[in-house]
């Protein structure tokens, strides 16, 4: 099975102190460290596991700039067979629809049986997967937390629904799935693996290569634009429970029960 995984490089929320820039329209990006979007990492792991069961190759693709090669290499170190960078000045400032347009143009050039995205990006809006499926006219399942290959034409996928229940679907290939965290345990990517793929060439495709009309993407094509960015004012602080240990435990249980944490 030929699998494409759409990935994205994001500022690592656990390793950065996210602050607003002076202009107040974006975060301060100096001294940030980046990593692969967490959901995408699960998607790549899932793709690798499917490929190792059914055969076939895993390709990772991202829309971005040279800086984003870092995450493509990391996913190659993880085991992805090839990586493609979609970069063009015309792509800068794309909204979700723009990204989906670029990706769909890329998908049309390859023969992929299965396309995976993360459910959302840590700094995104969770819209690319669905839009991509619509543009390709592929079936789409979101929030997927289990994939079983039935045969060459069908997958059985599991989705977690609110409240922790699980539903199962059958979906025809080719299709687009957005992958939920927890679907697997992503493998570790060590320094050694990253160094081994350090000099593997990563092809870059631009708007011309993809046949994308530059006016339909990027800032010019964006129909959703960010107008503000702020850190919410901290609300009321945590409630401190007082009393003896037993009293605290009783109050805690009461609170948890009242708020549905205990059944």
């Amino acid at each position: 099975m030929e699998i494409l995984v759409c990935v994205r490089r994001v500022p690592d929320t656990s390793e950065n102190e996210i602050r607003l820039n002076d202009a107040g329209n974006d975060i301060e990006r100096d001294e940030l460290v980046y990593s692969i979007n967490e959901w995408d990492n699960y998607a790549v792991e899932e793709a690798l596991q499917i490929a190792s069961r059914t055969g076939g190759k895993v390709t990772v693709v991202t829309v971005g700039s040279e800086d984003d090669e870092e995450v493509l290499r990391r996913q190659m170190a993880m085991g992805a067979h090839q990586a493609v960078l979609l970069a063009d000045e015309a792509f800068d400032g794309s909204d979700g629809q723009g990204i989906a347009t670029i990706l769909s143009a890329f998908v049309k050039k390859g023969g992929y049986d299965l396309i995976l995205t993360g459910v959302q990006a840590e700094d995104g809006a969770g819209q690319v997967g669905g839009m991509l499926a619509a543009m390709l006219d592929y079936p789409f399942a979101s929030l997927v937390n289990a994939i079983e290959v039935v045969d060459g034409k069908t997958l059985r996928v599991g989705r977690e629904v609110e409240g922790g229940n699980q539903e199962m679907h059958e979906i025809d290939l080719p299709c687009v799935l957005s992958i939920q965290t927890g679907i697997n345990e992503p493998r570790y990517v060590g320094m050694r693996g990253i160094r081994q793929v350090a000099s593997v060439p990563i092809p870059t495709l631009g708007a011309g290569d993809l046949g994308v009309d530059p006016a339909s993407v990027g800032r010019t094509g964006a129909r959703v634009t960010r107008t503000d960015y702020f850190v919410p004012v901290l609300g009321k602080g945590a409630e401190m429970l007082g009393g003896s240990r037993e009293e605290i435990i009783d109050k805690l249980i009461e609170l948890m029960r009242a708020n549905g944490g205990l059944k």
Binding site: D12, E15, V33, P186, R187, M191
Partner: peptide
């Protein structure tokens, strides 16, 4: 080498790689 590392250790290892400490502090 086989990528077989508990999830709980992967974050601090990644932070050590990018920040030089397991906590991901600046």
């Amino acid at each position: 080498d086989d990528g077989n590392v508990p999830q709980s250790l992967q974050k601090p290892l990644k932070a050590l790689e990018s920040r030089g400490n397991p906590y991901g502090k600046m």
